[in-house]
Computed example of a mutant assay.
Amino acid sequence: MYFKTKENPSAPSVLIILGLFLINFLFLGGLIQVLIMMASGASLTNMLESGGDFSKMPNAWLAMIISQGLGSLVGFVGTAWFYWRIVEKKQWSELNFKPIPKPRVFLMIILIQVTFMGFNGWLQELNENFVFPESMKGLETVLKGMEEQLAKATKFFTTFTSFWQFILAFIVIAIIAGVGEELVFRGLLMRKLFLGIKNIHVAIWLAGFIFAVIHFQFYGILPRMMLGVLFGYLYYWTGNIWVPIIAHIFNNGLAIIIMYLYNLKIVKTDLESIDHVPMPIVLFSLVATIGLMFLFKNYMQSQSVESQS
């Protein structure tokens, strides 16, 4: 990664980006959700008495998916736009260090992601089975309670059978989230961390950790962090922000497609019910992913040499 023009210092930039995100996503996103729910027929009293569970409100699914989409637009895309275009006064194209790669590169990325699923599923299994020491049982109870609430919300969002619900969910959960989260965590945060730390590997892993933590799901932090790390290396090796964006959209979109097919009873496997990955699959997934990433890195380096010659 190299910087064509001078940029704001790393440490204050990271704080500004995270601050903007928290304001936009938590405050403005929360306000948008309340307004959308009220517009759909819910009263403020009912929302306060619901304890955060809006699934029983009038037109709940449509209202919640729209508010989720608008909240993500404001929280992620809005944060990236405000910081990069207003604070830094730069063009979107300056997030890229290299031109968008050839279509075959995206096919390679999809193959890497599919291969990676076995190992990441095992990390999810480890994460879900983590047991806190006796002295931290209170924290464990709180985190499990949060996890159960998020699981209910996810189940509610992804229980759809009509095609228009599937399309709307795909736009919100795959496209908007994929674009917005990669702009913030890879395009901005990873970039700024590298600018300050001067070590790309530390920047990638630290950005992946922040990406996982910011989702407020302790029992999904390991697989989400590793996805963030994978996206970070894809961005670093290709030098184009569209690569992790497409990878993120594929990851989320594939899950939405499988859930839709499961709801239609076309496939019999519910992603939420998979709680064990056989060790041979885990080992094959890990070795194959490392091998494919090594080949991918070498391929991108060879393409860079060819373009310079």
Rank of each mutant, 00 (worst) to 15 (best):
G30M: 13
N127W: 06
M38D: 04
Q33C: 09
M38T: 09
G19Y: 05
L22S: 01
L18K: 05
L70G: 01
L44E: 10
L31M: 14
L95N: 02
S67E: 08
W92M: 15
A42T: 09
K56E: 13
S93E: 13
F25G: 00
M47R: 10
G52D: 14
G75R: 03
Q124D: 14
V105K: 11
F27S: 01
I23P: 00
S43V: 08
V14Q: 03
W61D: 02
F21C: 00
D53A: 07
F82H: 09
G51C: 10
L95I: 12
F76P: 00
T45W: 06
L126W: 09
L48F: 14
V77N: 05
G19S: 13
G19E: 08
F54N: 01
M47C: 14
Q91I: 12
I32Q: 04
G121R: 04
S50D: 12
I32H: 04
I110E: 15
S72W: 00
G30L: 13
I36P: 00
I17V: 13
S67D: 06
I66R: 00
I100K: 15
I112F: 07
G41H: 11
L62H: 02
S93C: 10
I36H: 02
D53N: 11
I23N: 00
M37Y: 04
F106N: 03
G71Q: 04
I112M: 09
L28H: 02
I100R: 10
V105A: 10
L48V: 08
P101Y: 07
W61Y: 10
W122Q: 05
I100C: 13
E125S: 11
L15C: 15
L31H: 02
Y83L: 02
S67L: 09
G71T: 01
I65L: 04
I66N: 07
V77P: 02
L62G: 03
I65E: 01
G30S: 11
N127S: 15
S93G: 14
G69Q: 03
S10D: 06
P9S: 09
G41M: 12
L35F: 14
N46V: 15
I16F: 00
G30P: 05
N24I: 00
Q124E: 14
P12T: 06
N127V: 10
L73Q: 03
Y83W: 11
N46P: 03
P99W: 06
N8K: 09
S93R: 10
F106V: 07
A63V: 04
K56V: 14
K89R: 13
I17E: 05
M57L: 12
I109K: 03
K98S: 12
L18I: 15
L123E: 14
